[in-house]
Design a protein around this nucleic acid. Sequence first.
DNA 1: CATCGGCGTCAGGAACGCGTCAAGACCGGC
DNA 2: GCCGGTCTTGACGCGTTCCTGACGCCGATG
Lengths: 221, 221
Amino acid sequence: MKVLLVDDDATLRRALGIGLRAEDHEVLIAADGRSALQAVREDRPDVVVLDLGLPDVTGVEVLRQLRAWSTVPVVVLSARAESTEKVQALDLGADDYVTKPFGMEELLARIRAAARRAGSDIPVLEAGDLVIDLPARRVTRRGDVVRLTPTEWGLLEMLVRTPGRLVSQRDLLHEVWGPAYGRETNYLRVYVGGLRKKLEDDPAQPRHLITEAGMGYRFEI
Amino acid sequence: MKVLLVDDDATLRRALGIGLRAEDHEVLIAADGRSALQAVREDRPDVVVLDLGLPDVTGVEVLRQLRAWSTVPVVVLSARAESTEKVQALDLGADDYVTKPFGMEELLARIRAAARRAGSDIPVLEAGDLVIDLPARRVTRRGDVVRLTPTEWGLLEMLVRTPGRLVSQRDLLHEVWGPAYGRETNYLRVYVGGLRKKLEDDPAQPRHLITEAGMGYRFEI
DNA sequence: CATCGGCGTCAGGAACGCGTCAAGACCGGC
DNA sequence: GCCGGTCTTGACGCGTTCCTGACGCCGATG
């Protein structure tokens, strides 16, 4: 599981990082709000641990911007137990709120809980005559199984994880082909074409795999 | 029979473990919810004994997660006799609910009962002219018994436990050959070939043991 | 109207993964 | 020790998947 750790305190980062890695999580680090937002967009972590006391932007502001487009579970850390801030954070879509000082075990537990809650949101997605079962890795169209190659799966999975939402070309390439393939948009054209041929009634008039010229693609239910 | 024991209390684990092993069960241990879910996925126990008072996630949450994809019988242990929690657990698919303190004999009986009930739930899987009886470790094809080697059985069992669902090469190797055989996909090719020869009408055109190139295999009913 | 950038399509050829086979190693029972 | 069954291992052919470049279309731009 990928965990993004947003905190300006190097000591705390180090301690949490050790604990998280001990549980086989992949740990990403961001020391300020700007890079935190960038990291969520580019690396798609499964959970974000966000300290409200950041140097540049307030943590609350980071959370607000994040929630404009992402549903990634966020566990908020704060030195203050003040009710107002806590309410504010939870209203903005934080999944949990942990007050310092806290036990490492408790935090790890809350992170796991948040990730698990989020992970079981959409087991199968139905879109018209398509049924997309992500955990089973199975797509059916009007009841018939559709066979996809691994690359086609990676692309479809990335799009389907945020239905209706635009996913940039850069992020798609980053996720499916790796960070090095920053601007090879021809891959995308070829594979989106392949997916449309397999999934759409009329590949020339796609209803699900929508192009946003110059930006990316979105999966429309 | 494989029993997964999920409890954070080492004393209780030890006591139950002795009792279960005395009845010729194979006992697996998990001390928290996360490893419990992992253990069910990877080791496919026949019964799960789940203590609701776990350190990380609530036992109820573990149960909910589990039921998203597994039908393994679960016997719940709890210190509280509160009706709400009990109802909640049973609603989520627990097969039995045991309140502490309990007698060892009682618990063992309930475990046996749960396993028996579950065993008669899906005793056999019928797929075309195949009948696969997991508890009896027996496969028949058009009424004739098919002889399988231990490795072939392990592979088939892993695939058949989640019909229609893709099982990754990694998980198959992990379960049948052990964690060390992370990328020896040649084993899989050889043994899937052997199974097809024994189970499929036309091994070159398999209808049940389906390959998903680069990803894994699935058992199609 | 001409140009340009972005998208969709297609069709090789390369690279990879899969199925098969057979020889040898290993391990049990006798 | 011998024998049968089982598992491992490597090699080979073949089909699938992936990459790559070329081309046409379309809308935007000047």
